[in-house]
Design a protein around this nucleic acid. Structure first.
Length: 462
RNA sequence: GGUGGGUUGGCCGAGAGGCGAGGCAACGGACUGCAAAUCCGUGUACACGGGUUCAAAUCCCGUACCCACCUCCA
């Protein structure tokens, strides 16, 4: 059974037929780098990273573009509040985003274009739209350029809306627009905005509107037609609707499939800045490891709403630790082929919950064999293979060399712990259980867990 | 007003007409000096009211509640 995915445009699960046999092209809307990324933001990164990995694992030569929006109203407003240049804020937040992705083992895309690096392509696309009668420069001398929604009959097709049914935006600035639903392709510079945030254009100094950058960049790196376009559900309208309208109006077929990941909510509500910053990635990673947070995100289907809670996150961490301890027990194994059931789950609209269930089934079978004194090499190889596809392989160097970082400390601690364990071994040999347990308890109080195994006691820092 | 999604056991979270996904927690058993880890076992779950069907968590009608989008949003 081949890969099939839910296409938001047609609202049905469709078989994936690549434009070019054996190849897959994917454009994902990244973030506007205006604040620290929180759990909700990285969900999209993780979801599409899993898609990208599965496409590659399925044999597709994959080109993956994920942009960064580094100029927009919010960046300008926030940087002004903070009293620093907008590009400094954007750069800092971009680095925070990179760090968050890295801590979750989200692979780098083939290329990560910035909006500000594509002004010539954006201007060229706007000129093309004007020439074709789908865009116009505002007549109020503002240097704004708008897309003419009424000139494109298919407008609204992606989000299933009719122009006439739409609520006129309360906050839409009607200046210079022919229709309130027309959206900006180019925003003329306002006197209140810094000069550094504007570029010369045929219409005057200004900067790109939000949507046009993605059309321009997708076109530059993936061509006029490509396979997948992804992003968060809230981007479906207006962002993706507008991207598609302006791209198609310019004669480009654009994306064959539209994929949208659902929300992470807290207290039943969409995550947002107003809920505080307790869910920014560095804060969350004080509670669980990056690999555990990633497992939490992967264990839910990408189209399901997730109600974030730290207790659910803890459960996920426990579940993941079960997988890790199996790999430790089973010993080293190379990543092997994934089981058919895993493949079927992933092929079915990226069914990671079912895939994770297969993972656990395999772990249980492996543990059963180990308990029976048999080899679990086959299970360990399969588990490694599955974890690899999900970006959850604990042995992946991307998770950092925490073991190597403090080798000296670990060795020193090992000597001390061994000394205590030797003492405990003597006590146990003498059947002095009270003393043996007291030694173990003292280590536990220091955060060191002791497990007695057939190969002798093992210790680990909790 | 328009569009779309949701409500599943103590908790998280799949499934989309018929064999109880999986995990966490709990309980019982095995193993262990005791633990830990692991294995085996244990669950009258599908918001509510009707209907269709041999069979409904799944389809239909209705009701309730929740959420998202409608030009700032992952």
């Amino acid at each position: 059974m081949a890969l099939r995915l839910y296409d938001s445009a047609t609202r049905e699960v469709r078989d994936f037929t690549p434009l070019q046999p054996g190849k897959a092209s994917l454009y994902v809307c990244g973030l506007t780098v205006q604040s620290e990324p929180h759990v909700g933001h990285v969900r999209s990164g993780v979801n599409f990273d899993v898609l990208q990995r599965w496409l590659r694992a399925s044999g597709y030569e994959t080109t993956f573009i994920r942009n960064v929006t580094d100029i927009d109203d919010k960046i300008l407003a926030k940087s002004a509040d903070q009293g620093r240049p907008w590009y400094n804020l954007a750069y800092d937040m971009h680095r925070e985003l990179d760090a968050a992705y890295a801590s979750l083992n989200v692979a780098r895309p083939t290329y990560e274009p910035l909006a500000t690096g594509h002004i010539p392509e954006i201007i060229a696309l706007i000129e093309e739209l004007i020439a074709k009668g789908h865009a116009y420069a505002a007549e109020d001398g503002s240097a704004d350029v708008y897309f003419d929604v009424r000139s494109w009959p298919a407008y609204g097709e992606l989000s299933g809306q009719k122009v006439d049914d739409m609520e006129a935006a309360a906050d839409a600035d009607p200046r210079g627009k022919r229709d309130p639903r027309d959206f900006a392709l180019w925003k003329g510079r306002k006197v209140s905005e810094p000069e550094t945030a504007s570029w010369p254009s045929p219409w005057g100094l200004g900067r790109p509107g939000w949507h046009i950058e993605c059309s321009a960049m997708a076109g530059k790196y993936l061509g006029p037609a490509f396979d997948f376009h992804g992003g968060g559900l809230d981007l479906r309208f207006p962002h993706h609707e507008n991207e598609q309208a302006q791209s198609r109006a310019a004669g480009r077929p654009f994306a064959s499939y539209w994929l949208h990941n659902a929300w992470i909510t807290t207290s039943g509500e969409k995550m947002s800045k107003s809920l505080g910053n307790s869910l920014v990635i560095p804060e969350v990673l004080k509670k669980v490891r990056g690999i555990e947070l990633r497992y939490y995100l992967v264990a839910a289907h990408y189209r399901s709403h997730v109600e974030f809670s730290f207790s659910a996150l803890d459960e996920a961490a426990s579940a993941f630790q079960r997988i890790e301890s199996f790999l430790e027990r089973a010993g080293s194994a190379e990543a092997g082929e994934v089981p058919d059931a895993f493949r079927e789950a992933m092929d079915d609209d990226l069914g990671t919950p079912g895939a994770v269930a297969v993972l656990h089934d395999t772990v249980r079978e492996g543990n059963r064999r180990l308990s029976a004194g048999e080899s679990a090499a086959a299970e360990a190889a399969a588990v490694r293979g599955m974890l690899d596809v999900l970006g959850l392989d604990p042995a992946d160097p991307a998770w950092g060399s925490t073991k190597g970082d403090d080798t000296a400390l670990t060795e020193a601690l090992d000597v001390l712990v061994r000394a205590v364990l030797d003492e405990r071994a003597e006590a146990r040999a003498a059947k002095d259980w009270a003393r043996a347990d007291s030694l173990r308890d003292r280590l536990k109080d220091a955060g060191i867990e002791i497990e007695d195994t057939p190969e002798g006691p093992k210790w680990s820092v909790n």
